[in-house]
Amino acid sequence: MHTKESLMKQLEELKIKKEGTLLVHSSYKSLGVVEGGPDTVLDALSEYMKDGLLVLPTHTWEYINKDNPVFDVKNSPTNVGILTELFRKREGVIRSEHPTHSVAALGKDAEAFVAGEYKHETPCARESVYGKLVDRHAQVLLLGVDFKRNTYIHGVEEWIDIPERVTDTHEQLFSILHTGEKVEVPSRRHYGLSWSEHFWKVEELLMEEGSLYKGKLGDATVLVDDAAKTTELLTELLQANPDLFSDNEPLEEKWRTFFHKK
């Protein structure tokens, strides 16, 4: 059985930077049996990162749309797992106000990190929290989930304007802010096809280039991603091959050796 102490020891073994920024995408059930359940996992992450910034996605893209357009930062449940739903309700945690791609943050600079997210018209704008992950040289912990769940990679494609990733037209969404004010948020959405299902293609390449590595937390296999280095590598690769994630086929050999030839 895993405990808060054993999980914290594993986080240290994973070389998670205690004073840095950590974004966690998670599958709670992948951890196995944890004494105290999901709250223990959040206790371990929160205590380990007490001198840094802990961030979990609290997305609502699955059900906030033109037919159900109102996001309430205090009350709208997440659609990305039990750890995220419990985390957003914790004391001291601050949730951002983007209607579909909010995050919740705890710790150093949390309020500044999440401020003004409702002002962005796309899910992963460069000025949003997803761009800030890169600027802060954050680590992304993919806990029991694979690279397909790594949201900011959508941002990388958005920032270099890969075609057909976000709609040209806007949906009229709304956010109810922490102040209680209801604001309009005209939103360009991701296209229906989930390009993220193709992100697995670059896992091995990123491991070879040193921006991604594997480890364990509880019973779960985890990936630890260097957001800045991965962004640098994928930006270069996508500029050379904009269709990189347009199919679900394994990476062609010429792209596997792309960086080796330079």
Rank of each mutant, 00 (worst) to 15 (best):
A44W: 06
E47L: 14
K50R: 12
D51A: 13
G52Y: 08
V55F: 11
L56G: 07
L56D: 05
L56F: 13
P57V: 01
H59G: 14
W61L: 13
N65T: 13
N65H: 15
P69Y: 14
D72H: 15
V73W: 02
S76C: 09
P77H: 09
N79D: 14
N79R: 13
V80E: 07
G81C: 04
I82P: 02
I82E: 07
L83A: 11
T84Q: 14
E85K: 14
K89H: 14
E91S: 12
G92N: 12
G92D: 10
V93N: 09
E97Q: 07
H98R: 01
H98M: 01
T100C: 09
T100I: 15
T100M: 05
H101D: 03
V103H: 03
V103K: 04
A105E: 00
L106A: 05
G107E: 04
K108T: 01
K108L: 04
D109C: 00
V114M: 00
V114Q: 00
A115T: 00
G116E: 02
E121W: 06
E121D: 10
P123I: 09
C124F: 10
C124A: 06
C124H: 05
R126C: 01
E127G: 01
E127V: 05
V129T: 10
K132N: 01
L133G: 00
L133F: 14
V134T: 03
D135H: 13
R136A: 02
Q139G: 10
L141F: 07
L142F: 02
V145I: 13
D146E: 12
D146P: 11
D146F: 13
F147T: 06
R149G: 04
T151Y: 02
Y152D: 05
Y152S: 12
G155Q: 03
V156N: 02
E157P: 09
W159H: 07
W159T: 04
I160C: 07
I162M: 07
P163G: 07
R165Y: 12
T167I: 04
T167N: 01
T167D: 02
T167Y: 02
T169R: 04
H170R: 06
Q172N: 03
F174E: 03
L177W: 05
L177H: 08
T179I: 09
G180S: 06
V183A: 08
E184G: 07
